[in-house]
Amino acid sequence: MQENKELSFEQSLDRLDGIVKRLERGDAPLSELLAMFEEGTSLVRACQTMLSEAEQKVVKLRKTESGEPEELPFDAE
C-alpha cells in the first residue's frame, strides 16, 4: 500500500513535469489544453495530499529462521 503510494508519487511528479512543459510550449489545441490542465491540477492535489498525509514508519528488521526478515517495532534503546 505504502509502496504503491510512493511509486505513484514519483510517477505523478514525472507526469506533472511533462504536463507543465507541454503547456509552456504554448501550442496545445484547446481540447488538450483543458484536459491537461485538469489532469495537472488533480496531480498537484494528489501529491499534496500524499505529502501532508504521510506518516513515518520505522521498523526494526530481525532475521527469522528461514532467513526472511521479520518486522518488529523499533524503540530507540
Binding site: I19, V20, G26, G40, V44, Q48, S52
Partner: peptide
C-alpha cells in the same frame, strides 16, 4: 517539494491563461 508543486501549479495556470488568450 510542496513549494515545487505550488510553483508547478501556478506555472500551469499561467501557461493555460496565456494559451487561452492566444486562442
Amino acid at each position: 517539494m510542496a513549494e515545487q508543486l505550488a510553483a508547478w501549479d501556478s506555472r500551469m495556470l499561467t501557461a493555460v491563461n496565456k494559451r487561452l488568450r492566444e486562442l
